[in-house]
Amino acid sequence: MLKGAIEYAPSTFEERGAAVAFTTPLLSQTRVRRGDRSKLEVLIPSLSQGLGIYVVAWRAVPDMVSMTMHDRYLHDLIVKEDACSPYEIRRATLKAARRGLAGPQAAQAARRVLEEDDEQGTLTHYLLILAILKAVGLESPEMLKAGIDTDEGQRLTRQLMTRAAESLRMDATLLYARLADVAAVAAPVGLARSPRTGRLARGLNDLKSFRDSMTAWAQDVPSDAGPVAEFCAAVAQHSIDIGDTVLGDFHRRIEAIGPLLRDWDDAFIRVRGQAARMAWLLDGWSHITGAWEVAQGEDRQQQAATVNDLFRILPLLPRREAGRDFVEDAKQVKVVHRRSVRMLEDWRMGRMDIDAIRRIESVKAFAP
């Protein structure tokens, strides 16, 4: 069901929806959310170049748009899993890409990312064990020397964790369960003292590089797309400001592992909420930073076209999260954006654009 174009100024992340990495140009980075009666619906930017969006029942999308095979599979998967959070959408996206439906490079990248996720989870779990033992004064050179992946290392770890549970005045089974919960929440974000940066922390760093590159491009390249690029950089900066604050607070709470485990009911809800907020805050940005990275190898005209295309899918912060109204700012930039688009004669249409699909697939291979 098509509900028609509406003004797009969401109040919450959930109302904004999670970005979906479709390869069909018209649907690329459209957002899915729960609508009436908790049914999934997709938000499609208005084709009239306005700031409105079309709200479409999720199940009706294949009947409205000619979709690639990858997108039909991903669409069915999201329906099947009833997914609409950034974590769930990412998991479905990686499953679809791993099947090779978005090309061999995207499939290879998806397999690599899934392996990295597993490795990050294992590393985070190990580092949290060390943090717990340190917090209760049970650091063990013997355990470190043996290695946690050996039989002797695991035996020493069990002994020490049992003693740690006694120090924390909780059952060892409960300690292990809470440790697993913290590790699952912390792995995507990353620990402050980890030798490997977490995915979300890395995404925040990528966003800072995007901001710097977009600002420099706007200054160096005379183009009607310059003000659009400056706006993109400003939106990125606002997300960065909030992201730095959330990430810093998240790391401080995780490092206070003893109080976190003891004051569990309240403390873990806060930590889990901060991790979810980081995921929502960065949702949709990986495609944008990846697309801009790919555009660095193209000519200035194509870069300007990329700037204009990215403007339409910028993850504007919801009203409750933002300290300023970027929707109103976007309306002013939109005048320049229309002029730049007309100059380039480049606008996404409903027809199947093979070149555009290939560009999107190259981004998926770069940043799945």
Rank of each mutant, 00 (worst) to 15 (best):
S11E: 14
F13G: 10
R16Y: 05
A18Y: 01
T24Y: 04
L26M: 11
L27H: 02
R31D: 01
G50V: 00
L51W: 02
G52M: 02
I53G: 00
Y54M: 11
A57F: 03
W58F: 15
A60I: 04
A60S: 15
M64V: 08
M69W: 14
H70A: 05
D71L: 01
Y73I: 13
L74K: 07
V79N: 12
I89C: 07
L94F: 01
L94Q: 08
A97H: 03
Q105P: 05
Q105N: 14
A106D: 06
D117F: 11
L123D: 04
Y126G: 04
L130K: 09
S140K: 09
M143G: 02
D149W: 13
D151L: 12
E152T: 08
E152Y: 13
L160D: 10
T162I: 11
M170V: 10
Y176E: 15
R178K: 14
L179M: 13
A187F: 05
R193P: 05
R199E: 13
R202K: 14
R202Q: 11
L204V: 02
L207P: 11
S209A: 14
F210M: 03
R211G: 04
Q219I: 08
A236M: 07
I240S: 02
D244A: 09
D244F: 07
L247Q: 05
R252V: 10
R253E: 13
P259C: 07
P259I: 04
L261M: 10
D263Y: 09
W264Q: 04
A267Y: 08
A267E: 15
R277Q: 15
A279D: 12
A279V: 00
D283E: 02
D283H: 07
G284N: 06
T289K: 04
W292T: 02
E298W: 04
T306F: 01
V327E: 05
E328N: 09
E328F: 08
V333T: 12
K334I: 08
V336Y: 06
S340G: 08
E345T: 03
R348S: 08
D353L: 02
D353E: 13
R358L: 14
R359L: 13
F366P: 03
